[in-house]
Computed example of a mutant assay.
Amino acid sequence: MTNRPKVRLALIFGGVSSEHEISCLTAGGVARAIDHERFEVIGIGITDDGRWVRIPHAELASYEVVEGTLPRVASDRPEAVVLRGAEGTQIATRAGDRLADVVDVDVAFALLHGPWGEDGTIQGLFEMLGVRYVGAGVASSAIGMDKDLMKRAMAAAGLPVGPWVAITPAQWRDERQASLDRVAALAYPVFVKPARGGSSIGIVKVDDPAGLEDGIAEAQRFDPKVVVEQGFVGAREIEVAVLQDLAGPPRTSLPGEIVMHDPDAFYDFDAKYLPEEQVTLQVPADLAPDLRDACRALAARTFAAMDVEGLARVDLFVSADGEPFVNELNTMPGFTRHSMFPIMWAASGLEYTALISTLVDLALERPMGLR
């Protein structure tokens, strides 16, 4: 047996977005499940005020939900510094005016959700540092983070998307009535969402025009730009996990379905991460074979049209008459063992640890620079 050196994998998590805790939860799940025979984990936490710190593997692996409380990056850990050295990217610890514990990095895995991480910003940093990284590139990350730009790109590619209205801060300030008039063309209920958020944070279901301005105000607490989407009444929420295949078309998992126990509820933050029997994640979804195949094919088309690399979760609606529509694409989906993305791949024959290894292998194999 050949003793190959371990791949040094920098897990980067936390961040300054409203999804800080979800990122930590994801990172804890990956740290516990990763193949330690193949990978050496270097934990880099980003505090909620944007500082990069070193987090020991044992501490990272302890990140879990405890009595309803989600983990956060501790602010008193040693400061991390990222360098581009002569031999590649390195991580060091700042010790006063010196750098200590300098280690080379083979691959970066940014388990960041939301702005300043999932939106192309850190991907651009990785490109400039010359380090290989897991997941989508700069452009597809940025477009996939903005629900308005994402839907425009999908519609331009001929993908079926539902009606929506985007409202920028300038439009809300200067053209408020015109913005409300544009929303009036949609059928209620509508969902008001932060344009560049995730984990269903800040989403408001609005059943009639009287609640629209309050719904917009709530979404604007998380992002000054919002989107208002027409709800699909009676639709089923279907999700498909997608992986890049460097030698062929994207690979798709068996679909899963989000089944809310309360028919008037929706899949919000609490239902995703603090479920308490609010929701059933049915994997695989109970779909007729032709509809199952149609959902998988649409997810693969969406992944390819958005030029995604690595991984994505494609969220679909299936209308009452059996027609699938794209809701959105998530380039860094929830990735704990209990998240839909790994659950769907496990049901398709790719278990959590092997899934992590597959993603790192994809990052190692794909070329650097323009591609």
Rank of each mutant, 00 (worst) to 15 (best):
Leu99Ile: 08
Ser199Tyr: 07
Ser18Met: 11
Phe303Met: 05
Phe109Val: 09
Ala288Leu: 13
Ser179Gln: 03
Leu129His: 09
Ala74Phe: 07
Thr302Ser: 15
Ala363Cys: 12
Ala235Thr: 03
Glu21Pro: 09
His57Cys: 15
Arg182Asn: 15
Pro263Phe: 10
Arg77Gly: 01
Ala187Ser: 15
Met306Ala: 14
Phe335Pro: 04
Val228Pro: 08
Leu359Ile: 09
Leu125His: 00
Asp321Gln: 15
Arg301Phe: 06
Val314Glu: 10
Phe317Tyr: 15
Leu246Cys: 08
Tyr63Leu: 08
Ser179Arg: 04
Ser253Phe: 09
Gly124Phe: 06
Thr47Val: 02
Ile203Lys: 08
Gln244Thr: 09
Gly15Ala: 00
Glu67Ile: 04
Ile22Thr: 09
Ser253Thr: 12
Asp104Leu: 11
Asp264Lys: 13
Gly234Ala: 11
Gly29Lys: 03
Cys24Arg: 03
Arg182Ile: 08
Val227Asp: 04
Ser62Phe: 05
Val314Pro: 10
Arg38Ser: 00
Met344Ile: 11
Pro169Asp: 01
Tyr352Arg: 06
His338Tyr: 13
Asp101Lys: 12
Pro194Tyr: 02
Pro255Val: 12
Gly215Trp: 11
Ala299Asp: 13
Asn330Gln: 14
Met150Trp: 09
Ala265Phe: 07
Val360Gln: 03
Gly68Ser: 06
Val165Thr: 13
Ala108Arg: 04
Arg173Trp: 01
Gly215His: 06
Ala235Pro: 06
Asp208Trp: 09
Glu79Asp: 12
Ala92Ile: 08
Leu25Gly: 06
Asp321Met: 13
Ile22Ser: 04
Ala185Ile: 09
Leu180Pro: 07
Ala33Arg: 12
Glu351Lys: 13
Val105Asn: 07
His57Ala: 15
Ala166Thr: 11
Tyr188Gln: 09
Asp262Asn: 13
Gly114Thr: 01
His20Glu: 01
Ala210Glu: 15
Arg313Leu: 12
Pro189Leu: 08
Ile238Tyr: 07
Pro249Asp: 15
Val138Asn: 00
